[in-house]
Design a protein around this nucleic acid. Structure first.
Length: 385
DNA sequence: CCAACCGGGGTCTGCCATAGTA
DNA sequence: TACTATGGCAGACCCCGGTTGG
């Protein structure tokens, strides 16, 4: 606001009030012709002349992508009072660069409607979890909406209290804020609903310590609180019915290896699993084998149809049999790039992928390199003899 | 020394719809 | 009635290494 007044003063100084009006009229005209160069009619309804010119100028000098911002939250541009300068100073004081600030406002314009007091309070609450300002700046750069979408600091405070009361450690809260910052912008009620849903689920499955179950599942899957209970519920049902798990096994799966896939959109889960099944059946696997295979490494349900098929294709191209793949589900963990590079290197080194173990395709880089070296040495030894 | 087994770490926003509100 | 606050959705892996047991 301060600088907007300065703008006013400058304009008035330079042009006087009449000059300002001329300038304004000229700008409106220029804008109209630059938006619609071949249009004779000027659609005054589509272009609100009341949009705050100073705000636009401020945002422009701050490197904000005005078009993007206007598309995201048009209402912000009709406000009489905005705090873009204060926001900028605030974020600068926390160590954000000009570029980051411009990007934040472009992507979440409503940020400029927050007051400095509210921002500072909110920041301090986040700092109760994060050790440094810089970490928060990084989160804001990634996900401005999480911080700015709500100005309800009481709710934020209650959320923190609530999550502590669930028994989450400091480290876990930190991970939650880093990887699922939206959790903290959720209403307390929404978070409670998910926690209660998870507790009820665990109880109905015969868990004797629901609180511990919730702790475990959240630390396994920090994003779970930003999913809808409908989504999580459907995925749990999917796991249960697809793999015919009894209560105990289902519990182990959803707070263990299956925790991550509870986040998948319901269509996605089904689509990806259906594809895996279809593909494996066509390659001669039995239904039972498919089930066992997927359950032995649930993460593969993350793989889109294209990615799963591409990986399978590139393995099969190198004469690796489906039974080898089934025995080593982890090879699907590696990127296609890694698979291709390694298979090429191994074949070149004289390693027979068809008869030898393929587990090394998914080893860590360090272990794989060491193994490749041994393979090379061995084949050279044979050549020398 | 070597590999099997297994768990962990990073990471997940940007958009739309709508009830509520001034 | 324009605007805000909030809920919900789609989309979708890859890599590392500790421990254990031969």
């Amino acid at each position: 606001m301060i600088s907007r007044n300065i703008w006013h003063m400058r304009w008035n100084f330079l042009f006087g009030s009449r000059g300002w009006m001329l300038q304004y009229a000229a700008e409106v005209f220029l804008r109209s012709i630059s938006f619609r160069p071949f249009s004779v009619k000027c659609d005054s309804k589509a272009r609100q002349p009341l949009e705050n010119e100073d705000l636009l100028n401020n945002l422009l000098t701050m490197g904000v992508d005005i078009d993007l911002a206007r598309r995201r939250q048009p209402g912000v541009f009709n406000r009489v009072v905005t705090n873009e300068q204060e926001l900028k100073l605030f974020l600068l004081s926390k160590g954000a660069s000009d570029q980051v600030i411009g990007s934040i406002i472009s992507r979440y314009p409503r940020a400029i409607t927050r007051t400095p007091e509210s921002l500072s309070q909110r920041w301090d609450l986040w700092r109760k979890i994060m050790a440094s300002d810089l970490e928060i700046v990084n989160i804001l750069e990634r996900s401005p909406e999480s911080f700015f979408r709500s100005s309800n600091n009481i709710n934020l405070e209650n959320n923190i209290k609530f999550l502590c009361s669930v028994g989450l450690t400091r480290k876990c809260l930190c991970r939650l804020l880093t990887s699922a910052p939206r959790t903290f912008a959720n209403s307390l009620n929404l978070n409670k609903q998910m926690v209660e849903f998870l507790q009820e689920t665990s109880m109905s499955l015969g868990h004797n310590d629901p609180t511990d179950f919730v702790r475990k599942i959240i630390s396994k899957n920090p994003s779970i609180l930003i999913q809808s209970t409908k989504r999580v519920k459907t995925n749990i049902e999917f796991l249960q019915s697809t793999f015919n798990l009894d209560k105990g096994d289902l519990l182990l799966v959803i707070c263990g290896p299956g925790a991550g896939i509870l986040d998948l959109s319901n269509d996605c889960t089904k689509r990806n699993y259906t594809n895996i099944k279809k593909r494996l059946l066509s390659l001669g696997c039995t239904e039972e084998e498919v089930q066992k295979f997927v359950l032995s490494y649930l993460n593969m349900i993350f793989l889109s149809e294209k990615k799963f098929n591409d990986k399978l294709d590139c393995l099969i191209e190198e004469k690796i049999s489906i039974s080898q793949i089934i025995e080593n589900p982890r090879v699907l963990d590696s990127s296609i790039n890694t698979l291709k590079t390694r298979m090429k290197e191994l074949v070149h080194a004289g390693y027979d992928l068809h008869t030898s173990n393929i587990a090394l395709l998914s080893w860590s880089q360090k272990r794989y390199k060491a193994k490749l070296k041994r393979v090379l040495e061995e084949s050279q030894g044979i050549l020398q003899v």
